[in-house]
């Protein structure tokens, strides 16, 4: 029973830390499937988290915070889109630039506006997301096995958590079952063919980039409005890169994205849990190894030792219309 209890706690924290990864990795899925590489997920998420924290602190409204997060994130996406689609600049350089601009400006603006060392003021109850309890969760918890699963694993999360996991099938449906999705995937594989069919490559890619911005906005809002009560400087702490790793690990497929994010989230939760406790057979595993594991796994996958990750064919290549 004790082991079962530990497992439930571990899985519950897995879900909690996976949410921003799911949002951000799905965001990356949309742009990368359209042929625009984006290593600026980290920056967009951080910018969104700051906008959410700042707007919610000023207006005391969680919804205005969420909208601000999405607006800022979409604006940053459009900068990336302008540089990499219209100006045909290097997409990786542009992503790096956005990460730096956001990392610096969130601290400078946060300090100038709130004077709390780069934080935004702690949010009161009405200005942040509350957990949702399923009906009778407390009563059902007493039921062995199924009780804790219902009460702790399924119930008691934030609205955004449920939205994140709902976005997985929704993204799948958009990408694989709508005309927009078909064209979006086509533009990432063979933009010339899409252009020949009389569809604007530029406008399609811009729409993909906007989708990415919206989803990164949710990821950032989750960090500062749900997971913690307010923005802390550098609070994304590499999550954007982990999401990028998860996206590659998932071979650019929605369902795999969810499992990859849950796996990396689980490793994260396990690393915290295992701190200082020795494992049978192996002995004590250094925390640093657990922290590096998602990156090591991604490198091994990329090297083709666990299946092969084939990126969208036109990824990273700006489209030049023939004259």
């Amino acid at each position: 029973m004790d082991f079962f209890h530990v497992l439930v706690v571990l899985l519950e924290s897995t879900i909690r830390v996976s949410v921003p990864l799911v949002f951000a990795a799905l965001a990356g899925l949309f742009t990368e499937r359209a042929g625009v590489f984006d290593i600026g997920l980290e920056g967009k998420m951080l910018g969104a988290a700051f906008a959410a924290g700042a707007a919610a602190a000023v207006t005391q409204s969680v919804w205005i915070g969420l909208i601000a997060a999405i607006l800022i994130s979409v604006a940053l996406s459009l900068v990336h889109g302008y540089a990499s689609i219209t100006q045909r600049g290097n997409q990786i350089v542009s992503g790096v630039a956005i990460n730096f601009i956001v990392a610096g400006s969130t601290v400078i603006l946060g300090e100038a506006w709130f004077r709390q060392g780069g934080r935004t003021p702690a949010l009161a109850e009405g200005a942040r997301f509350q957990t949702i309890s399923f009906p009778d969760a407390d009563m059902i918890r007493e039921v062995p096995l199924l009780g804790p699963i219902y009460a702790d694993l399924l119930s008691g999360h934030f609205l955004l958590t449920y939205l994140a996991f709902a976005m997985v099938p929704i993204s799948w449906w958009i990408l694989y079952r709508t005309r927009f999705g078909l064209r979006l995937r086509a533009v990432g594989e063979n933009p010339g063919a899409v252009d020949t069919a009389g569809i604007s490559v530029i406008w399609l890619r811009y729409r993909a980039v906007i989708c990415c911005g919206i989803l990164c906005g949710f990821a950032g809002a989750y960090l500062s409005l749900a997971m913690t009560a307010g923005f802390v400087k550098g609070m994304t702490a590499g999550k954007g890169y982990i999401a990028l790793a998860a996206l590659i690990f998932a071979k650019w497929r929605p369902k795999n994205v969810m499992f990859a994010c849950l796996l990396f989230g689980f490793l994260d939760a396990l690393a915290i849990r295992l701190q200082g406790t020795p494992l049978p057979l192996i002995g004590q595993v250094p925390v640093q190894f657990m922290q590096a594991l998602p990156y090591i796994l991604t490198v091994i996958l990329l090297a083709g030792f666990i299946g092969k990750a084939i990126p969208p064919k036109a990824g990273g290549v700006p489209y030049v219309k023939e004259r």
Partner: peptide
């Protein structure tokens, strides 16, 4: 860090 990002951009 901001200036660095702007220069890169």
């Amino acid at each position: 860090v901001i200036i660095q990002g702007l220069v890169i951009l």
